[in-house]
Simulated scan of single mutants.
Amino acid sequence: MKKIMVNVIEIQDKKYPELLKKIKDAPKKLYYKGEFKNDIFENCLAVVGSRRLTSYGRRMTELLVSEIAVKGITIVSGFMYGGDEAAHRTAVEAGGRTIAVMPCGINVIHPEYQEDLYNKILNNNGLIISEFEGDLLPALWTYPKRNSIVAGLSKAVLVVEAGLNSGTLITTGFAKSFGRKIFAVPGPLTSEVSRGTAQLIKQGAEIVMDASDILKYFNISTIDSIKANSSKKNSNLIQLSALEKEIIEHLKTESLEADILARMLSIPISKISASLSLMQIKGFIGQEGDKYYIN
């Protein structure tokens, strides 16, 4: 891999991010890789979630971040596997910009198996940032410092999934102390990684139903995107057969296995399986394990 130049910016520098500069114990120095442009910090949204991201959590992250990033909002996260990785990757794939805040020295890629994502962030006008220089390895004390920067750079924080004792809630704790807006995606209370988001909602976090809830907070128009999405959905529905429409109606409620759909619709499993395969090829539905869900 081609070596990428490391740069440093100090807190007294005019280019130092204004929002971050105002927080308590702001880093005196930021080490970074990538092009440090002031406009990347103008509208930042932190997107955080469980390392044990469920298929539901990944789909919601992809759905929300793809629409938000394409509107010019910079996605900030902590580069760990699970929720962080999904947020960074979706932003890059949507053509948006993302900032990865590392819990280690700027020369270290952690986790190292995400090197491909690391390079994609840099190759798509994103930034890699750390409070730590050199080859310092991550430790228990470095993660809260990273979380503070993630919250400090951002005007708002979106929580997709979180357990009751997760690092995600440490980030939202910083965000609250900094006066940031908290958004949360509701999830099933039977899931351990939805208990933290439920707690945040009880404490006043705003429930997110779709990307427009967040875009409105950033004063970004959602009219065009809503019209485009509505038109696309209507166009897609016209292309569905009667059986495919029935399948879609059942999948709107929850993800289901092929054999359950066959029993619900009183149709042979072979016919259901053929329809599901065709719907996957068309891009109407996806599959996670044995269950199918609407894209």
Rank of each mutant, 00 (worst) to 15 (best):
T222Y: 13
E93H: 00
S166I: 10
Q203D: 14
K145S: 05
G187N: 11
V108C: 10
D259Q: 13
A258Y: 12
K216V: 04
I128L: 09
I207V: 15
L63G: 02
T222D: 12
L137G: 07
I281T: 15
A262D: 08
Y113C: 10
E161W: 10
L215Q: 02
K71G: 04
L140S: 14
I121W: 08
H110L: 03
L117P: 02
L30H: 04
S277L: 14
E192Q: 15
H250D: 09
L45Y: 03
Q114D: 14
A139E: 15
K233S: 14
D116F: 10
K29T: 05
K37S: 12
D84Q: 00
I128Y: 10
G134W: 05
I40D: 10
K28I: 03
T61E: 05
S166M: 07
A91I: 02
K15S: 12
L122S: 10
T197I: 09
Q280R: 14
K120G: 07
P17N: 01
V76L: 02
A162R: 09
A156Y: 01
N147H: 08
S273C: 06
E206H: 01
I23F: 04
S177C: 06
G95C: 06
I75K: 00
F132I: 07
I73K: 03
K232E: 13
I238D: 09
A91M: 03
L127M: 12
G49W: 11
K252R: 14
G152V: 02
E42T: 11
D210I: 05
L64G: 06
Q280L: 14
L243D: 10
V160L: 10
R59W: 05
A86L: 00
G283M: 08
L200N: 01
S191E: 15
S221R: 09
G283A: 09
I220K: 12
N234A: 13
E62V: 02
K28H: 02
L63M: 12
P144C: 05
A26F: 01
